[in-house]
Simulated assay, not measured.
Amino acid sequence: MMVGHLDELSLSGVFVAFSFTIVTGYSLICGMAGALGTLCGQAYGAEQYKKLGIYTYAAIISLILVCIPISILWMVTDKLLILIGQDPTISHIAHKYCICLVPNLFAYAILQPLVRYYQTQSLILPLLFSSFAALCFHIPFCWTLVFKLKLGSSAAALASASSYLLDDVFFSMREFFRFAVPSAGMVCLEWWSFEGLILLSGLLPNPELETSVLSLCTRVSNELGAGNAQAAKMTVKAIMVLVVAEMVFLAMILFFCHLVLGYAFSSKKEIVDRIADMGPLLCLSIIMDGLQAVLSGVARGSGWQDIGAYVNLGAYYLVGVPVGVVLAFVVHLKGKGLWI
């Protein structure tokens, strides 16, 4: 949101970088950490409390090792983006942003196993207080770096890394990876499809506008639709009712605010108008994404990550992305076609 008020070019570069880092890093780390939902959840249910710590330490060490090749890949972001046809100026800004996000990646790899460690024991308040403290730190810190010290878009990445570090407070690796790989596949296949659409939007005419608008819609949808569910049959129906109510409520707020939502991210009227035009589609996406998040949580808790990976492969890559490409480039609906 803060970078968007610098200029349109910075906004496009940061969102392309964010999509690139999600595809190559964050989705992989988050997906692999999902293995702890199975391992720690079942260990806690069986009262094997010692295993909770063992699995968590193993996950942290494993994910830190995974971060090393990812961070090397981020060092050549500009070359890879230009290779796939992205605008060189946008790619250069994305490259600087990715480099500044490297510390954030390692902090994220430590944080995600700790989050699963607490979640599987239903210890939600520590997560809430920790996240709230990090948020209270992040907003003024990011504002200071971006606007007061005038460090530009890269400052947002540095602020993000600092916030994750604040939020962070070789045994069993084989079993961890046994669940981590399909878990990563399940999460990555979903996330990659959305971020792939953003990269595709960079190939459309006026890529700065299309990338900015589509990226903003993706961020809003992901944040409002994200969630996890306990793998217990008795609670699934109740959770579904609660999630539907919550998502409908959020969608209604978003619908009534969609004409002015864009001003939170940019003062450019063209971007604001395009986001307003995407508002109804975004509301529908939030409701469906909430239901999907619950069912994904059930799959992770039950150790069904391999099934979830196949489902996401079919839904997003055999149907979603091909339809989006046709609507955007053949029917010429551009960014709206990709989002549909």
Rank of each mutant, 00 (worst) to 15 (best):
Y26C: 02
L101D: 12
I90W: 04
A293R: 08
Y55K: 04
V241S: 12
L158C: 12
H258K: 14
I70P: 11
A180Y: 05
N222T: 09
L203W: 09
I70G: 04
D273H: 09
L125E: 11
F106R: 04
C188N: 06
P113H: 00
Q48H: 10
S267L: 09
S267G: 15
E195F: 02
G196N: 07
C98K: 03
A155C: 02
G202E: 07
A94V: 02
V294W: 06
T120Q: 15
G41K: 05
S212G: 06
S183V: 00
I124Y: 14
L250T: 02
P207S: 03
A184R: 04
S162W: 01
K269P: 11
H258D: 14
H332G: 06
K334E: 14
L128Y: 12
T56L: 02
H5Y: 03
K150T: 04
G202L: 06
F265Q: 10
D168F: 01
A315F: 11
L114S: 02
Q230G: 06
S122Q: 15
T120G: 00
L39I: 02
Y263A: 07
G262P: 08
S267W: 08
G314F: 15
L11C: 00
Y263E: 13
I287W: 11
G25D: 06
R174L: 11
T56K: 05
G202A: 03
